[in-house]
Design a binder for these strands. Structure first.
Lengths: 192, 192
DNA sequence: TTACTCACTTGACCTATGTTAAGAAATTAT
DNA sequence: ATAATTTCTTAACATAGGTCAAGTGAGTAA
């Protein structure tokens, strides 16, 4: 557990300088949470009250459209953040599910505690500024790829960038994350 | 010009509290720039050395793929930011064009000056954190719409959310922004 | 005024991906 | 071990949107 916590601090320190005191304040602000495979962390209609740092395991977040299709928009594993930022920051009901795809360990912080923390340690604003800035740039790239590249290209890109996902996540979810049907993904994989 | 500058301060103050002194430091860090319709602000291979706040006018940023197709990924007008964030923050050559679609006024800040400013006025980190956080959430929504909604749905959404774009931007660019061909956009508009 | 370019439309045809349906393989529960 | 469920594949067919080609109109330049 201590090892997990250090991972969080390690990442914070990559983009913002923390004192030892800062570090212990941060660690005490996060609450360790365990969630079993297939259990749900967030569901539509509920407020997303926490922001989560994944220390081990893997999760997916998805939206279920009117036809009942699951639209997976995030697959997140160790050392990344997951939440419904819109619900978390604007206190509006979420439209999304977040579900664990493996037994998962998280460090959770509430919105209220997060706001306090950002005041106590203004340095953290920098960390999150850079985090969101990069997330935004990545999201724009994924957007462009979705608009302009073929499903095959997007499959190859994911295979190159996140090969681990293919070891740990069922193909039906990967298909949805790529914006295609499982049948299409099957065809693509057969061609190779 | 002074009116333009105040607009920038107004937006900064929405999410982070600035003193009068902060405000004058900020204003002196930004350089007013004018760019004529059809002129280019950034092109592939060049470093994107500045971040721009649009005070009047409208711009598009786009990538030209191997086939020569222009892939428009941003259309930005008054009171929003434009840049190639990847090039700007990581000092790598840009892959994108930024072009004015009307005579445009900008407030520009270099990366170096921006870093200084964020140190002088740590409060600004908060503004940009929230800016990128929101940009990221919006980008994810646009991504999902592109994956799962029809071209017609995306057209209607844009018509609802940014009707002004249709008054000021040629349809060929709007088509590209929606991820479709001008021919498809024509068909969609005919159906209504 | 005439020419030239750029924006936009239309129609015929094509292709990537979706849909439906069935079954095989793998995983999980009993 | 057996059954039940979930994941994955395959094939036939359907369709949204792309491609190509041609033409109209509107804006700008000479």
């Amino acid at each position: 557990m201590d090892k997990d916590n250090h991972k969080l601090i390690y990442y914070f320190n990559k983009w913002s300088a923390l004192t030892k005191e800062d570090e212990s304040i941060i660690l005490s602000a996060f609450e360790p949470i365990s969630i079993q495979k297939k259990k749900i962390l967030l569901e539509p209609g509920k407020l997303c009250t926490q922001l989560y740092f994944v220390t081990s395991g893997i999760l997916r977040s998805y939206y279920v459209d009117v036809k009942g299709t699951e639209q997976i928009y995030q697959i997140r594993m160790e050392n990344s953040w997951i939440s419904d930022l819109e619900s978390f920051f604007s206190h509006t009901p979420s439209k999304y599910y977040i579900e664990a795809l493996e037994d998962t360990q998280l460090l959770a912080i509430t919105h209220h505690r997060m706001e306090q923390l950002l005041v106590e340690i203004p340095n953290l604003e920098r960390y999150f500024r850079i985090l969101f800035q990069r997330a935004y740039v990545n999201s724009l790239k994924r957007l462009n790829a979705t608009m302009w590249d073929s499903a095959l290209d997007r499959y190859n890109e994911l295979l190159k960038e996140q090969p681990e996902v293919f070891q740990r996540v069922p193909l039906i979810y990967i298909a949805s994350y790529l914006g295609i049907t499982p049948e299409s993904l099957s065809r693509i994989r057969k061609m190779k």
